[in-house]
């Protein structure tokens, strides 16, 4: 894992909350004991951000770039992967707050998401 402070990461289909790939082992992939439940939670967070009227784009071409949730111990970064073909994927990265650097991690995740697409 090349993002400093990253504890776990996964690629999630946000229509169903299905995780398509995990990195970091079953126990550490998400802050929840059950990675399936964590993937579902991630799916509902991104769905809320993308479909809720409050975040509807104000200017043409405006889209949700990422969602960052910060807790006292960690950062959770969720970033839609925009593939050329039709897909509904997000990249989720769980970052240790003491070790990780949010700005650098965010840039790394952006290039990761662009590499996938």
């Amino acid at each position: 894992m090349t993002i400093r402070g990253a504890i776990g990461a996964s690629l999630i289909d946000y229509t169903t909350g299905q995780s398509l790939g995990l990195q970091g082992g079953r126990e550490s992939v998400a802050p929840h004991a059950d990675p399936t439940a964590a993937a579902l939670g991630t799916a509902s967070v991104i769905h809320a951000a993308m479909q809720t009227a409050a975040y509807a784009p104000a200017v043409p071409g405006d889209t949700v770039e990422d969602v960052i949730i910060s807790t006292s111990a960690a950062y959770h970064l969720i970033r839609p992967v925009r593939t050329g073909f039709d897909s509904r994927l997000v990249l989720y990265v769980w970052l240790d707050r003491a070790e990780g650097n949010l700005a650098i991690a965010r840039r790394r995740i952006r290039s990761l998401a662009e590499d996938l697409a």
Binding site: D13, T16, Q18, L20, T83, F85, S87, L116
Partner: peptide
């Protein structure tokens, strides 16, 4: 397509 893209596309179509 890239190797990642074809895998993502295939698994998406599969599900």
């Amino acid at each position: 397509v890239s190797a990642a893209e074809i895998e993502l596309c295939a698994i998406g179509a599969l599900y």
